[in-house]
Nucleic acid binder design. Sequence first.
DNA 1: CGAGTTCAGTACCGAACGGTACTTAACTCT
DNA 2: AGAGTTAAGTACCGTTCGGTACTGAACTCG
Lengths: 201, 201
Amino acid sequence: MTGQGNTAVGRPRSFDTDEALHQAMLVFWKQGYEGASLTDLTGAMGITKTSMYAAFGNKEQLFRKALERYTDGPAAYGLRALEEPTARAVAAAFLNGSVRTTTQPDCPAGCLGVQGALAAGEAGTPAHEVLAEWRNVAGRRLEERFRRAAEEGDLPPGASARRLALYVMTVAFGIAVQAAGGIGRADLQEVADAAMDAWPA
Amino acid sequence: MTGQGNTAVGRPRSFDTDEALHQAMLVFWKQGYEGASLTDLTGAMGITKTSMYAAFGNKEQLFRKALERYTDGPAAYGLRALEEPTARAVAAAFLNGSVRTTTQPDCPAGCLGVQGALAAGEAGTPAHEVLAEWRNVAGRRLEERFRRAAEEGDLPPGASARRLALYVMTVAFGIAVQAAGGIGRADLQEVADAAMDAWPA
DNA sequence: CGAGTTCAGTACCGAACGGTACTTAACTCT
DNA sequence: AGAGTTAAGTACCGTTCGGTACTGAACTCG
């Protein structure tokens, strides 16, 4: 029950935790969980190891917080897309957002949720599982949105919400892989457009 | 100019290099380049570090050879697909092959070419670049095949071979990501089928 | 001004990393 | 049998890994 009021007692923190977390996110994004050493992380964050442990716990918890920040920041297009008026617009907005975020000039190429720990050794297993769940949650959100669209008559009777959600997520993940390999934004936007040709009705 | 005839001089190798390379491939496939330690690798290969260095050079060269083996083995569906008679059949065979290989029960889930080093620190950069090139080569092969199809009148006049190749590769990579996250074969086959709905004409 | 509390920095921990020198074992050829 | 050649095994190299005691410094409150 440690009070979290703004009455500061003790020596005040000399760095901005938000900015430090942002830098850590960028390192994880570029190098992956196992490829990012504490030296890489704290170097980019501009703090020492002790400060990082005091502020964030350990490497794994730092990664989880960096992923939350990624979700609310660069990956926010995911939730925004769900608010589009039609299922088709939702799918297009999701794919377009993934193209834009995975090819942002001032950020690492690709998607943290995909390349953060797609394969991992023993040390990276927790991160691997966290990211797999992160991707599945996104897919479930999309599926629920499409199910609602089906109930509203926004999708043809035969369409499967689950199948459509899986398809859109799969194309988005593929876009992330291509971006990580250096494929440019214009090419990937064409891919996103081509993917929408498979949309029903 | 060391002769490579079958006249064996010196102590004969006591392990099967092909089998050892196969085991190394499986470890890289499951754990990625940086996540696979020499202890993990040599443990699975059933040999000591010295034997591994004598037979394969170092970790990076072992990875390159494991990737070649992956190309000729689990990923051989890629070249086979190019031999299909029509562009549509090529695309379908490629996607179906990716579904089968990334969800093989007795192999790691996903694709070595995708998850081997999608993001990497400094130590994993060579592997990262090797895999990016590996994916691009596959895409170029597909693009050439589709260009030939266009010349043969096997594709509508407006179709872009490059765009179609990029689309098929992107879906295949997305399937690999989904498989790495535990999505099953039946679901992914539905995705592959759905992706073909975008095929022109 | 202490007393209490929290943060920063140095210096260090044991373990694991990729890689190698050196000895011993197993083979072919003369 | 002995020389020459190559592989296997042990034991070790320096470095880096994630993580932590411990010492001072900076702040609020009484």
